[in-house]
């Protein structure tokens, strides 16, 4: 079934219990406190494509990454991996090995006491993909070559490598179980720009060569633009705008997307006047009622303060765009 999306999220919500301990709650007569890190999210990722999620800290993008590989179970809603419920898919090693993750910090995600060859071979051993020692050695060598290292590097320890090389090792490890789907949570934020370019190029090359599907999480809009086919902008646990990357970047519709694009320092130095928008992301424990963006939104009116906006489907030359905004729906926004 080539049309089944690799990953599909249907109404996914994840909340965390952040209550004070029982005694303190009883004494202060306060109830339980739930933090909705991810709130009713829907998206799907087609095979061989990249969906990026972008947003500021605390918007829930890393929680989505963890939900997508099954590290968290959704509190409500459903995640389907290749058409099967994720929890069921994770129960089968044959499907579980088809998803993997690349983490942000290449200094924390590699075991410093293991040699690189063992780090890269771990998924192969865990899933018993190859049995003979020589076959594993050969495969690890091929993987290291594929990410731009040499097979001889397998004998070294992680501390002998720079940040960019370590991220290459993480990628080699992620690829060793022959996955179809990779979740990349800020894979280049810890790297310098010239090294970032190397890693981004490598990731795109691998995607083309191996037909990989990516869920790409980042706070860096320029990186996201470079990597994504489709783009979701998150704010306080919700996706406020979702559509083809080019559509969202060319004609941002949601006021928050506009704010984000506006806020990025302008390298082209066109000297366009910029209005830094005031305010910060509110605490997700106590999000504002109605549209959670309304305290910072230049277009907010009474309706935005009470009623939570549903997603409106808008046509764009690049494809359809979903936007959750009353102002856009009513045509209140100035073009």
């Amino acid at each position: 079934m080539p049309d089944t999306p690799v990953l599909q999220a249907i109404g996914v919500t994840r909340s965390f219990d952040v209550s004070k301990p029982w005694l303190q709650r009883t004494l202060t007569r306060k109830g339980r406190l739930l933090l909705r890190a991810v709130d009713d999210i829907n998206f799907s990722i087609a095979r061989g494509s990249t969906l990026s999620l972008v947003g500021e800290s605390g918007c829930g993008k890393s929680t989505v990454a963890r939900l997508a590989v099954g590290l968290y179970a959704p509190s409500a809603g459903q995640i389907l991996f290749e058409g099967k419920a994720l929890s069921a898919a994770r129960a089968q090693p044959a499907l579980r090995r088809r998803m993997n993750m690349i983490f942000q910090d290449p200094y924390a995600s590699l075991n410093p006491r293991w040699r690189v060859r063992d780090i890269v071979a771990e998924p192969i051993r865990a899933f018993a993909l190859l049995s003979s020692r020589s076959a594993i050695v050969e495969r690890v060598g091929a993987l290291l070559t594929q990410v731009g290292l040499s097979p001889a590097d397998g004998e070294k320890f992680p501390h002998e490598f720079s940040g960019g090389q370590r991220q290459r090792i993480s990628i080699a490890r992620a690829l060793s179980s022959e996955p179809a789907f990779l979740v990349c949570d800020e894979p280049t934020s810890a790297l310098d720009v010239s090294v970032q370019a190397q890693i981004l190029n490598l990731m795109r090359d691998l995607q083309m060569r191996l037909g990989l599907t990516y869920l790409f999480i980042s706070h860096n809009l320029a990186v996201v633009r470079h990597m994504s086919d489709r783009l979701g902008v998150m704010y306080l646990g919700r996706i406020v705008e979702l559509g083809p990357g080019e559509a969202v970047f060319r004609t941002p519709r949601h006021p928050y997307t506009r704010l984000l694009l506006e806020a990025i320092p302008d390298l082209a130095m066109t000297g366009k006047p910029r209005t830094p928008v005031g305010g910060e992301v509110p605490s997700p424990i106590d999000p504002p009622p109605g549209c959670s963006f309304h305290p910072r939104c230049p277009l907010a009116n009474a309706r935005c303060r009470i009623e939570r906006p549903a997603h409106t489907l808008l046509a764009d030359p690049q494809g359809e765009v979903l936007v959750a905004c009353h102002a856009v729906e009513e045509g209140r926004h100035a073009a």
Partner: peptide, 24 residues
């Protein structure tokens, strides 16, 4: 020059970023 070229642009999308090979 290499540093400036390796920064992904917000204005347009390119197939591949120019990269400086190696590390400092």
């Amino acid at each position: 020059q290499g540093l400036m070229d390796s920064i992904p642009s917000l204005q347009h999308r390119v197939g591949r970023l120019r990269q400086i090979d190696g590390a400092m």
